[in-house]
Each structure stands twice: as C-alpha cells, then as structure tokens.
Nucleic acid binder design. Structure first.
Lengths: 253, 253
DNA sequence: CGAACACTTGACAGCCCTCAACGTGAGTGG
DNA sequence: CCACTCACGTTGAGGGCTGTCAAGTGTTCG
C-alpha cells in the first residue's frame, strides 16, 4: 500500500534543502532560470524569492497533493521524480506525467479551486512551493513573471501532443526515452545513463500501452543495440537511431 | 485547392458584424461572458472592448493565420467553425481542434512569437480579434482578466485529454459528438440537431482514426438508433445512450 | 456532361491487448 | 543465513479492433 502522508498542505518549514537558502535560488529552479534569462532584475527576483517555501524530503509513496485538495500553490521539483495521475471511475489509473528536477507541478489546478489530479513522489523528492495567490498578485506587477507563467501554461498544452497521436508502441517508447533524456540533460544530468524511476506499469499507463508491450519493446530495443537496460538502470547506446524512431512523434519539439 | 487568403494579419475594419457594435459585445463572446460572470465592472469591460477588432466574414478555405505568422493576437469565434491543424514533415495533416462560436483561438501562440499551427475557416466565419500585447498589459491592471486568461489556458490543457486516452473508435466518436453538442448548446444552438461543418476526413484526422472507420461507426450508430445522419446534417436521437458510450472518455468534464 | 472530390462499402492483414504462467529480486522474519 | 512472500517484470499464445488497400457510389462545380 502506498504511504498516505500528504505533504503539500502541511509544510514543515524546518526541513530545508541544502543548495538553496534565504538568498539564493537552487541552481536548477525553473523560475529563477527563466526569469533571469528574461532579464528580470535582482529586486524582482528577490520578491519572487520571498514567496518560496522549501518542502521535503518526501519519500517514495508520499503524496504532494491529491484530487480535491484546495488549490493553493504550484511547486518546482528540486530533486527526485513526481508522478501525477488520476483514478477513473472504473478504478483504472491514468498517469498524466512525470516531473523531474526543475519542472513545475500543479499548473493544471489554476482552472479550479482544487487540484484535478494526484501527485506522488516516486523516490526521494525535494520541492520549492509557491503560493499561487501571492505569485498571482506579484505577476500583476511584474510583466516578466506574468509572461513566464503564461509560457509555462502554454508549454504544457503542447507537451500533451506526445500522447495525442496514433503512434506505434516503438515510436511512443522511443519518444518517451528521448524526452526523458533531454529533460534530464537540460538540468545537468547525464543524457545517456539514467534511472527509470518509475515502474514499467507507470510507463505503460503513461504511454497508453500494456505493461507487457513496454517489456517487449525495451527487450527488442536492447537486442537491436539501441540501449542497455538492467532493471531500472538505463543506458542509451545509440541516441541517433533512437532519435530517428522518435522523430515522427517529436518533430515539433 | 484551398483559398490562400490570410485574413488575420490584414484586418479589414470596414467589415463589421451585426450583433456587436462600438458599445456592445456580441452576446456569445467568450470574454464578456466570463468577465461579467466574474464580476468585472463596466469600466473594465469598456477597456477590454477598446481592444477588440471585428474581422470577417471569412469564407470556407480562408486562413485566419498560418504556421510562422507573427503572434500578435488571439481571437474569439463569433460565427462559423474554425479548424486548427498542422502539417507534419511527411505531409500528413493533423487536426488539432475545431472552434465554435464563443471559443478562443490562438492561445497556443503565447509560448512563442509566431503561431504554431494553421487556422482555417470551414464555413462563413466572423471573429473578434484581441491584440495580445494590449490585452496582456491590461491583464496586469485587471486581476479578473488575468485570472480569465489563466483559466482559458489551463482549460485547454485538459481538453487534450479527449485524444490522449486509448479509447475505441466508438468511444472517440461518441465523445466527439457529445462534446460538439454540449459546446453548441452552451452558446444557444440546438443540442440535438446540428451540422457537421467539417469533412469526415477532418473528423478522422482529429480523432486519429481512418476516414473509413468514421464512416462505419456513424453508420452503425444510425442503425442502432443513436442518431440520424444525412451527409453533414446530424440529429442525435438518443443522447442518453450516446452519452453512456462517451462516458469513459468524458468522465472528467 | 465530365471531372474532381467526398463518402461509402468490402476484404484482409497486422499490431497490440488480453489472458495466463513463470521468473526474479527485495524485504521480512525466523 | 535461509525460507517465504509479494510485487514487479518477463515470456508465450491467441484473438479482436482498426488501418490499409481497392473499388464503387454520389454530389458539386465548372
């Protein structure tokens, strides 16, 4: 059974992470990166910083928020992997996404007053939490921040395209691995060697495939020399061919 | 061959529609409805109104904007149907959505400085055009408007879910018809009788099915008494059963 | 009237899901 | 240290849905 602890509504401010402090954003933060790049001045960054709360560590199975929890904040993942998912009336789980360091969760709550999905830690997770009412007010005064929020939202609309097409199992799997590699590389992790922090069942659920199909495709990819996989340890051996397989799916990005 | 006229960048302000004027929003406008409902005051509405340009009429095949056009504005559909689509490197068309009166197009351009898709009129179309730089500045001063823009964006994230699942052809088709019925009904049109303003090929492309499958499913639905279809004229005879078929797809909405 | 296009109908095959059984590793308790 | 358990993952057989290919029908428009 999964851990029932819900971490988001009950922040423990005494537990702070080590690479961000009162005056420095963590180096991987989705907000500071984007804001800096867009020329937000130091004062603005400072104001943004006032809103942040460090949350964690959460452990595998801990929930960040659940369906129906009041929508109060969005959060950037600092470390670990967060899975967002919903349970349909038939009891089947639908995985909406995986969120790696530097990425933002909770955006889809903006349309309502409660979260529309569950978010659970897959391993040890650290978060930066931003109160949405406060960041919203601040966005009214800082055009750069408003623009950034618009962009984060708009970007998520496009990301869904990976799942929207009627791709084959091979194309879906290749695209999933390439995207994961790119997203991790963008935050300074290795593009060729990383952990599949989620279960095969989760990958299958995300890609709308059967778990058996995920197994078979991974095995065939390995036999074809595209990659080496041992349990959840993955090494991509041929980014070129894997990218070529994924190309029809990812041509927009 | 489709008409190559591109209407959006070259507005003809002399052509105005008849149910909205200098001082009144058209009754179906997505903005005025939402803003009123959220308690925006008359003065704010007036400011918003200053930004609007009426565009049209466009005719079937006219483009509202194309991939790569500079992103300058979003628009609300006042009359007719707009199809958004992209062409992949293989030359295949992917239909992203159909947009009926009262709905907004162009939102996915916010993430960049050009439109990421094409938008074409499927029949006679009237639009209300909002300059994005201007509405963006205004949003900084009017929290209600900013909130509304956030919600419009966030809502589109959810809408993609219709296509994301691994539904059967029957479920997809039923969900498509139910959604179309609901959206038209929300703007005052009949929920039971309406025109399929798009070609079978477009529906197939949108639902990621083969055109032949769309044909077969519609025929079977008719033989089962769910609906009556003659060319592009559609009548839903059994909303209950159609809704039941669509339920697995639409349970969130 | 002819051509182009949209749509329909039929035959067939392939991909992937389902069902079932088995293998494997981590954690637990004796 | 070992046996046990359980979840996770793998492997195999079979079938159904839907895409592809092909041909035919109907409609619109020049």
């Amino acid at each position: 059974m999964v851990n029932d602890k819900v971490a988001f509504p009950r922040v423990d401010p005494s537990i702070l992470a080590d690479d961000g402090d009162e005056f420095h954003f963590c180096s991987t933060c989705a907000f500071s990166q984007a804001c800096m790049a867009q020329g937000m001045d130091k004062a603005s960054l400072g104001e943004l910083h006032m809103l942040v709360e460090h949350v964690g560590p959460l452990h595998a199975g801990d929930h960040v928020f659940r369906v129906g929890d009041p929508f109060e904040a969005i959060a950037a993942v600092r470390a670990g992997t967060v899975k967002t998912y919903i349970i349909d009336p038939g009891g089947r789980e639908h995985v909406l996404g995986f969120h790696f360091p530097g990425e933002v969760i909770g955006l889809d709550g903006i349309d309502g007053d409660t979260y529309p999905c569950n978010a659970v830690a897959l391993d040890t997770v650290m978060l930066c939490r931003f109160s949405f009412p406060k960041i919203s007010v601040l966005a009214g005064r800082l055009p750069g921040l408003q623009q950034h929020l618009f962009r984060l939202l708009s970007r998520d609309i496009g990301r869904a395209a990976l799942l929207a097409g009627d791709w084959t199992a091979d194309e879906r799997m290749a695209a999933f691995l390439v995207m994961m590699s790119r997203r991790l590389a963008a935050r300074g992790f290795s593009a060729d060697r990383f952990q599949l922090t989620m279960a095969r069942t989760d990958i299958a659920n995300y890609l709308r495939l059967a778990p058996e199909t995920v197994s078979r495709v991974l095995k065939r990819f390995q036999s074809e020399g595209l990659l080496h996989v041992d349990r959840r340890e993955l090494e991509i051996l041929d980014q070129g061919r894997l990218g070529a397989l994924a190309a029809p799916v990812l041509w927009k990005q």
